[in-house]
Design a protein around this nucleic acid. Structure first.
Lengths: 142, 142
DNA sequence: AAATTAAATGAAGATGATTTTCATTATCAA
DNA sequence: TTGATAATGAAAATCATCTTCATTTAATTT
């Protein structure tokens, strides 16, 4: 948490941006959140804590948090983007249940190795990837 | 081409939908297209051929073509969807060059096998997946 | 072939997420 | 403190997607 704050402040400093009260409050709230929130989800939560913070600031701050490397945008094809912590959280992919919407985080070094191999075969230099497997989770199959 | 038309007409028939001039013209144009077009890309092309076909019809027909199994939607995180032929075209994933936008289609049975294994470990029944690897293509690395 | 029924079309507008504008406020550095 | 500049919040603009509705067209029935 403290660490993450340092990362964010560092990013701001590097870019001549300011460490404001809103950014502080939003960063801490965001870091406390579990799971994957849309901008609006997060805005609703923010409202309950402090209704003087506007949507635009929430929007801009989430984008900034991503740029700082503390979060990333994920898109499950819902027509809106969700935000997910990245800090102290290894890269992973998702199983997405198309019935109940549950997300399961997965990680596979073997797959990553194959991805890199595949990229190399095409003279392609990979920087990141997205992988989602859609289907039915254990609960929904019962 | 003829084959694809049959598939489409078959789908229409099964659903009590009609084989109209617009649908015919749009299907044939779409099948001739290479690469991955957005709705608007395709609408622009249609306009040049026949400006009496409206955007809504283009939109609805692309959706129909997908439902018929001849195409699928792909999302490269641009905030809009692209359409890609599927007929006589095995499932594949993409390398996406973030410099020039080039797409390279890739396929890896090993990765798919690992995906299925991973899913199974989570009692998850996979139905489909999306995988995109972003980075720099051979040209752009030079 | 005419009448009937139901789907398709195109124009326009609704929707909803995202992004921008702009007047005002807050931060930072000198 | 002051001046320069970034940040904020409200509102509006944008943009892709999707829907509505009056009209047209296709298919079916008489």
């Amino acid at each position: 948490m403290r660490e993450a704050e340092k990362v964010f402040i560092g990013y701001l400093a590097e870019h001549n941006l300011r460490w404001t009260n809103q950014r502080k409050e939003l960063l801490h709230l965001f870091l406390k959140m579990e799971k994957h929130l849309t901008i609006d989800d997060f805005y609703q939560i923010v409202q309950r804590k402090n209704d003087r913070i506007g949507y635009a600031t929430v929007y801009r701050t989430l984008k900034l948090i991503c740029k700082s490397g503390l979060a990333r945008e994920v898109d499950f094809g819902e027509g809106k983007v969700r935000f997910e912590h990245k800090y102290a959280h290894e890269h992973h992919d998702h199983l997405v249940c198309t019935q109940c919407g549950k997300l399961i985080e997965i990680k596979s070094p073997e797959i990553e190795r194959l991805q890199n191999k595949l990229a190399e075969e095409h003279c392609f230099e990979p920087t990141w990837h997205k992988m989602q497997i859609f289907g039915n989770c254990g609960e929904c199959r019962k």
